[in-house]
């Protein structure tokens, strides 16, 4: 009898030990709810996709700022992010973008300049901001008519700093041409090439010559800003210019020497 009772208990333990059905159903319901949530999210996100102009979400990110290459007066900054909902198998270009930007900022200067430039920047920033005017010593003094006290330069105070020309009275006779130089350099300076940690007051001092046909030659970095990336960005701004336009017909010299105080600001 006792043996029979034990067998019954064993059967009960085996088949009636735990209520499996309830938790299983619960689990299934939860999974179904989760799947529904994911599908619902996808649909809702898809509904709003057509509002993504100017930048859609995605894995790769690229900062957008390219209108500096367009010869329009305005420079456009845009922080779109690159994305595709159907990423392809080809090498994903966007992923290299952030690196490329950083390469510009860091990789280039590291080998050559860190040793040379680093000692300079620390002492220079203190004395540098006061330097641009003393640099007028560097202006060429050739071919000038003596005795004239016409202003030597026309300074355009803008985001990129002033542009000055070396000829005695060029600035007063042709201020529109000097304006044009400044405008063009402002439009070709790509601020995203400059390391974000560069102090706002930093300025590089460049000297170049404009030929009669408006093309640039003899570009030199007169004085470093202390930031290799700003120096390079300023140099590239000048190099990007195909022509500043023919020198004015009333100007009888064959070239025009220009100093460009390239300032990192605003």
């Amino acid at each position: 009898m006792s043996t029979l009772l034990e067998a019954n208990e064993q059967l009960e333990r085996t088949f009636g030990r735990e209520p499996v059905a309830g938790p299983a159903m619960g689990s299934l319901a939860l999974h179904a709810a989760l799947a529904c949530a994911v599908v619902f999210y996808g649909l809702v996100a898809g509904l709003f996709h057509h509002n993504t102009w100017g930048g859609t979400p995605g894995s790769g990110t690229i900062q957008v700022q390219i209108t500096s290459s367009i010869p329009l007066p305005a420079q456009k900054l845009n922080d779109n992010v690159l994305t595709t909902s159907t990423p392809s198998e080809a090498p994903a270009i966007p992923e290299t973008k952030p690196q490329q930007q950083q390469l510009d900022l860091n990789a280039i200067p590291i080998p050559g300049r860190h040793e040379k430039e680093k000692p300079k920047p620390q002492p220079l920033p203190k004395t540098q901001p006061h330097q641009p005017q003393p640099r007028t010593d560097n202006y060429a003094r050739y071919g000038e008519q003596t005795g004239q006290q016409i202003p030597r330069s026309v300074a355009q105070t803008g985001a990129n700093g002033p542009t000055s020309v070396s000829d005695t009275d060029f600035g007063s006779r042709f201020p529109w041409y000097v304006d044009g130089i400044t405008r063009k350099l402002r439009s070709t300076l790509n601020r995203q090439e400059v390391d974000a940690s560069t102090p706002l007051s930093s300025q590089a001092y460049l000297i170049f010559t404009i030929r009669r046909d408006g093309t640039v030659t003899d570009l030199q970095l007169g004085q470093s800003s202390g930031s290799p990336t700003l120096d390079r960005a300023c140099e590239r701004a000048v190099q990007r210019v195909d022509t500043f336009g023919q020198l004015p017909a009333g100007y009888n010299q064959s070239t025009l020497r220009v100093t460009y105080d390239c300032q990192y600001g605003h």
């Binding site: 996100a45 979400p57 995605g58 007066p73 420079q75 456009k76």
Partner: peptide, 19 residues
């Protein structure tokens, strides 16, 4: 929330002077 941040259209500084 992250996606919502990316959808913000960043303004541009087109207001530079023309002649």
């Amino acid at each position: 929330q992250l996606l919502a941040q990316d959808w913000v259209h960043v303004s541009t500084n087109m207001a530079q002077e023309k002649i």
